[in-house]
Computed example of a mutant assay.
Amino acid sequence: MEFNYKIILASNSPRRKELLSGLDLDYDIVVLPGIDESYPQDIKKEEVALYIAEKKAKAYKSLLTENSLLITADTVVVLGEKVLGKPIDELDAKDMLHQLSGKTHQVITGVCLTTKGKQKTFSVISDVRFSNLDDSEIEYYVSKYKPLDKAGAYGIQEWIGYVGVEYIGGSYFNVMGLPIQRLYQELKKF
């Protein structure tokens, strides 16, 4: 598939690279260090990922040329009223997995498509239910897979997803970090 834009993926995530590559598109990766991913505490939890994706787009805006299209994204895990981003350390990762154990949570990815003159944003929500995870499973996963770069401290495509995920409602790829089918549809419209 060909698009009229030079596509730029603003992400260091190997999962997002893998998913975007699955569309057979030519794209470049540009990563600016130190982008602030904070958000106002009074924002609705459903809007956090989109807020951060838009914030990332603003940081890259000056790099855009007339024919470039920037893709920024952010993924968060929402459990009840709590937003779980990336864990700060292994202890935090274990705590997050204990919180998710035996419960259903939402994975929300906000995506922002930006050109010099236009911006389109959307978010996708998937439901994920974990079985009850015991301490040894959580310890094993965190020590072996080091999920510190993943929202909610897990990658569904890794061991924990194989043994712990009972149910997914919605896009599996969204849970991986990029709702690729929806992204494709939005790129076609763009």
Rank of each mutant, 00 (worst) to 15 (best):
N4S: 08
N4P: 07
N4H: 05
Y5R: 14
Y5D: 05
K6A: 11
S13D: 04
P14T: 11
R15Q: 07
K17G: 04
E18S: 06
E18T: 05
E18F: 04
L19G: 06
G22N: 05
D24H: 15
D24W: 08
Y27K: 06
I29E: 00
V31A: 10
V31P: 12
L32S: 05
P33E: 12
G34D: 15
G34H: 13
I35C: 09
I35W: 10
S38D: 09
D42W: 10
D42L: 10
K44N: 14
Y51R: 02
I52Q: 00
K56W: 03
K58R: 14
K58Y: 09
S62D: 12
L63S: 12
T65F: 08
T65E: 13
L70Q: 06
L70A: 08
I71K: 04
I71N: 03
V76K: 06
V83D: 00
K86N: 08
D92N: 13
D92A: 11
K94V: 08
K94L: 05
D95A: 06
H98Y: 10
G102D: 12
T104W: 10
G110P: 03
Q119N: 10
V124Q: 07
I125N: 04
D127Y: 09
N132L: 11
D134A: 05
S136W: 12
Y141S: 01
S143P: 06
K144D: 05
K146R: 15
L148N: 01
L148K: 00
I160W: 00
I160Q: 00
G161I: 02
Y162R: 11
V165K: 06
Y167L: 13
Y167Q: 13
I168K: 02
I168N: 01
G170E: 11
Y172Q: 04
M176E: 02
M176H: 02
Q185N: 15
L187I: 14
L187N: 11
K188G: 06
K189N: 14
